[in-house]
Simulated scan of single mutants.
Amino acid sequence: MRAELRAKVIEVCDKKIASKGENVGLSFYAFFANKNDNPALLMEAATWWIQTHQLDHFVKAKTIKQMVEQGL
């Protein structure tokens, strides 16, 4: 996962956890605006989420943040 996406994931997870609590879940779409302005980055996130880690549609933000920080 490129550094730009890694930073965005951590930032979004931190914001979601701060506003909705430790148990908030999210999907990889949470890292992008409703407007698909960067399809390559969206596909990278989708590939990481779906193919690489076979995650469910919604996963706890704290779990995703930990995975990204660990370089998974």
Rank of each mutant, 00 (worst) to 15 (best):
N36W: 08
N23W: 10
A61M: 02
K8S: 04
A33Y: 10
V59S: 00
Y29G: 10
M67Q: 10
Q70R: 12
L5G: 03
A40D: 15
F28K: 01
E69I: 06
L72Q: 07
I50R: 11
L55I: 02
L26C: 11
L5R: 02
N34M: 09
E44D: 12
F28A: 02
D37R: 05
V12H: 06
W48M: 09
E22R: 07
D37A: 09
A7N: 15
A46I: 01
K16L: 15
V24C: 14
R2G: 05
N34H: 05
E4M: 06
G25K: 15
L55M: 14
L5P: 03
I64Y: 08
W49V: 02
L42M: 11
A3C: 00
G25I: 08
F31N: 04
R6L: 10
K16F: 06
F58L: 07
L5D: 08
E11M: 01
S27G: 12
R6G: 01
I10M: 08
L42G: 05
L41A: 10
I10T: 06
K35C: 03
D56R: 11
D56A: 13
E4D: 14
A61P: 04
L55W: 07
W49D: 07
F31E: 06
E11F: 08
T63S: 11
V59I: 15
D37M: 14
N38W: 12
M67V: 02
V12N: 04
K60E: 14
N36F: 03
T63F: 06
K8E: 12
N36M: 14
K8Q: 13
P39T: 02
M43G: 06
D14L: 12
P39Y: 12
F31M: 05
R2H: 05
A61K: 03
Q54E: 13
M43T: 00
N36A: 12
R6Y: 00
K60Y: 15
K15P: 00
Y29P: 02
M43S: 10
Q70P: 02
E4R: 08
L55N: 05
V68A: 08
T52A: 13
C13E: 12
K15R: 10
L5I: 15
L42C: 04
